[in-house]
């Protein structure tokens, strides 16, 4: 390290200030919502609750977790996240393995067929009509099947598979292993990090998705948490309906909750799982993004 000049010190100080502001700007909205979610509802509506709860209560969270509709919405979200992510990773990895093999006849043509879909999209209405014909409208499978495969993820996984020396595969073959066995027992265990990255991306996608539910379903039974939240965030009449419903279930708590604080509690409860697992998976997803960007 060379000696830092006076100008360098000024620059460093300036830099730390800028970075700290970005951190504060990012965290602050979460903090205010968290504070609100622990504050008594009617008291919150009077305004002025910012940095710390004025009248602390857990009743917002109790209402969120005791509400039948929300409970069901979480069930939908969790189901689609687990099933959808597992199938997506398995299917994408399988295709990626086939595509990663130089021996594959027709590989270049397949690649062009796949890449083209990344640049041109049929559009919303044709997609809607297709789902209608396939019977996917108002069907839980609409969350699962259309997201089972992604060319982008396939390319990321494929380039990872390519980094495995061909000789390993060749020697497994001499030992009599078939392609499926090589894929399952040799390749998959070697490529866990990239599969973890893809699983994280896809899991977060499923956890956060609401547009597919909004576009392709109308049944309340299929509503995921995010769509439920979407309705109460954007529509205050939905929010107060939800508030009344929650109050009717818990009459003794009714005075303490308001639609606004319920909404905040629900937002926090929905974000929490992501916040908890995210730091542990950070090193994987950074790797995943980089492979994707180098190849793409």
């Amino acid at each position: 390290m060379n000696i830092r000049s006076k100008g360098d010190k000024w620059f460093d100080a300036f830099n730390v200030i800028i970075m700290t502001s970005i951190v504060v700007l990012t965290i602050a909205p979460f903090w205010f919502a968290l504070v609100g979610s622990f504050n008594q509802g009617l008291d919150y509506m009077r305004g002025g609750v910012y940095f710390w709860p004025r009248t602390f209560t857990l009743s917002n969270y109790f209402s969120v977790f005791s509400d039948q509709t929300i409970f069901h919405a979480y069930f939908v979200t969790i189901s689609r996240t687990i099933v959808g992510t597992a199938l997506h990773v398995a299917f994408t990895a399988l295709v990626a393995y086939g595509m990663s093999r130089r021996a594959l006849a027709g590989r270049n043509v397949y690649m062009i067929v796949m890449m083209f879909t990344m640049f041109f999209y049929g559009g919303l209405v044709p997609t809607y009509l297709l789902y209608k014909d396939l019977g996917l409208l108002n069907n839980f499978l609409v969350y699962i099947i259309p997201t089972m495969f992604s060319v982008w993820d396939m390319i990321i996984v494929m380039s990872f598979f390519r980094s495995i020396p061909e000789q390993i595969i060749e020697s497994a073959k001499i030992d009599g292993a078939g392609e499926y066995r090589i894929f399952l027992q040799l390749i998959l265990p070697l490529t866990k990090p990239v599969l973890a990255a893809i699983a994280l991306f896809n899991g977060v996608y499923h956890w956060n998705a609401y547009t597919d539910a909004m576009l392709f379903t109308t049944k309340e039974a299929l509503e995921p948490v995010q769509l439920f939240l979407m309705r109460i965030v954007t529509d205050s009449s939905e929010a107060s309906k939800f508030g009344e419903q929650a109050a009717s279930v818990m009459p003794e708590e009714a005075k303490q909750i308001s639609p606004e604080t319920l909404k905040l509690a629900m937002m926090m409860a929905t974000t929490a799982p992501i916040l908890v697992i995210y730091p542990f998976l950070q090193k994987y997803f950074v790797k995943g993004v980089l492979i994707g960007s180098v190849k793409g």
């Binding site: 909205p29 979460f30 919502a33 956890w207 956060n208 995010q226 937002m267 929905t270």
Partner: peptide, 9 residues
């Protein structure tokens, strides 16, 4: 974080 939640924040 989903846009629903970030937008809500």
């Amino acid at each position: 974080v989903s846009w629903v939640i970030f937008g809500g924040l």
